[in-house]
Design a protein around this nucleic acid. Structure first.
Ligand SMILES: [Zn+2]
Ligand SMILES: [Zn+2]
Ligand SMILES: [Zn+2]
Ligand SMILES: [Zn+2]
Lengths: 133, 133
DNA sequence: ACGCGTGGTGAGAACGGTTGTCAAAGGTCG
DNA sequence: CGACCTTTGACAACCGTTCTCACCACGCGT
């Protein structure tokens, strides 16, 4: 089985994620790490992120342009997100009603192995204020 | 304003979409067109699809691998989809409850210009049967 | 502490979907 | 028919992501 060694690079990625409250792309994280002097290869950032995602240590979601965004969420249980399109600011949300609705609908159609993608996008109060200038 | 000329190529793309009940990628459509003798360039297929999407004539959604999938849905109003991961088979679904929930939650957090992504993925009965073989 | 073996790293190449380029093709209208 | 102007299509460019592979270093066993 996977050993999952703790290397300088992986530590750096996890620490960067911990300090950021918002969803960030792999490339943004890579840039952040370089900026703070922690030299980590881009490929390594991608590998660290996908390992973390597989271990459910980070959540992944796809921006509208297809780029993958990563975030270390407070809760480990299944949940969804309300994300600001402009700054990435994120609010974790529960949707017990929605979960139930999703599996009921899918089952009624004879589908199996059901997964749902439920994400909310908007403009947060701060971003609205600064763009209204 | 845009003239939107009706050319042989655009007609072919629309017709192909009309005959297909499932979500298909641009490349799949391109292949389908070639197969039936209608020669249309790949770039043209992409352009036709994005024009149709902008005009809300087709729905677009992103597969898990990031590829864009297109479908000409029966209803023009806002709706969501339950899609088979394997064959693309699609069921259109309404979610009045979910719509209400989404806008309520987002508004409560002070977010504006709210959009939601709600898609259901599963394995349809046919695909389950054939893979159980 | 030291050395070894295995997993991790990183620069760059490769990949795959999508978009841009630009000269040639063909609707549209007078 | 001819000017005008949009559309087409082969191909190159893009961009995020993954692969390659030689080099490196974590960490266990001694
Ligand atoms: Zn989360
Ligand atoms: Zn914001
Ligand atoms: Zn639809
Ligand atoms: Zn199916």
């Amino acid at each position: 089985m996977a050993a999952a060694r703790m290397t300088r690079q992986r530590t750096a990625v996890v620490e960067a994620l911990d300090e950021l409250a918002d969803f960030r792309s792999a490339q943004q994280l890579h840039e952040t790490l370089r900026a703070r002097g922690e030299s980590v290869g881009l490929a390594t950032v991608y590998r660290a992120l996908q390992a973390l995602a597989e271990a459910s240590e980070v959540d992944v979601l796809r921006a509208e342009d297809g780029e993958s965004l990563y975030r270390r969420c407070a809760r480990r249980e299944h949940h969804h997100h309300l994300v600001c399109r402009q700054c990435g600011r994120t609010v974790e949300i529960d949707g017990p009603t929605v979960e139930a609705w999703a599996s009921k609908v899918a089952a009624a159609q004879g589908f199996d192995d059901i997964e749902h993608t439920i994400e909310l996008w908007g403009t947060c109060a701060d971003c609205r204020a600064s763009s209204k200038a």
